[in-house]
Nucleic acid binder design. Structure first.
Lengths: 145, 145
DNA sequence: CGTTTTTATATCGCGCACGATTTATTATCG
DNA sequence: CGATAATAAATCGTGCGCGATATAAAAACG
């Protein structure tokens, strides 16, 4: 049990460093789109469903408004989205893709394939691993609440 | 192939959100030690091997000096480590645990068990998943270089 | 042996990421 | 209806995390 406190045996360390490794693979690909990695995730979510609220995006991306508000302002400055207060409920801010934001999707379509290639795994294997990691995330989120 | 650009099918998104979920589980545990999560990882590495250089730590933790230098200064301010320039090579900074830093290990010993419990998996299963994620990280790191 | 190159760390600027708080709006309750 | 509570974003302060650059020391070279 000596190795209880060895870094290489930490699932957390594996996830932490894998996350950084993914970021490093993504960075050069996303630079061509003028996006950071979290900005890219927000765009992907908006391509799936346009007109989401800040809170709705936060729930999907597991991010707080304190993270999203400045991020979305940068996306607005970049010209990819518009931020509009809802008329029905003035507390809510709705995020809508601009024309340029919609067009960006075409340039982004190839990225997941690049990542899959870099991972050196086939699609089936990746899907299985991805499901396992999601299950881990869900178990952890349940334990906090 | 419509779902090529769906967030839930992204391995990167799974890892990204799992990493945040782990951080949320760790946070309250680490607060009792007065450490952040990256600081904790640095301490674990030092408990394994005291007297590492900034560069050596960076290689183990996959972090740059621009991240580590301020982090280690904060650990020094907290009284857990000392930063000393090597006499043989004045470019190198060696990090040594203080008495308090050494003692902290006892308080940290139970944390991995808490995380394992929160994950809801047995040790064997966690080890297997951890190895898979490490393999993913290594494949990604190879593809960048 | 002096110049150039390499190496190790530090500094700077930017963008997350979060907890705590603030502000504005809506909902609830007596 | 008016006071209170709840909700949605925004703001603020702190700590990563990295690329680019700076600084200083050591190594390599002619």
């Amino acid at each position: 049990m000596q190795d209880q406190l060895k870094l290489d045996n930490f699932i957390c360390f594996a996830v932490y460093t894998a996350s950084h490794a993914l970021n490093r693979v993504y960075k050069p690909l996303l630079e061509t789109l003028g996006l950071t990695y979290p900005q890219y995730l927000a765009m992907v979510s908006l391509w799936e469903q346009d007109g989401q609220t800040v809170g709705g995006l936060g729930e999907k991306l597991f991010l707080e408004s304190s993270t999203l508000t400045p991020l979305l302002k940068r996306l607005e400055t970049a010209g990819y989205v518009r931020r509009e207060r809802s008329r029905e409920d003035e507390r809510v801010v709705v995020i809508r893709l601009s024309e340029e934001g919609i067009r960006l999707k075409e340039k982004a379509i190839g990225i997941p394939g690049c990542i899959a290639a870099a991972s050196g795994r086939d699609a089936v294997d990746l899907t299985r691993l991805q499901a396992e990691i999601v299950a881990l995330r869900e178990a952890l989120n349940r334990s906090v609440v």
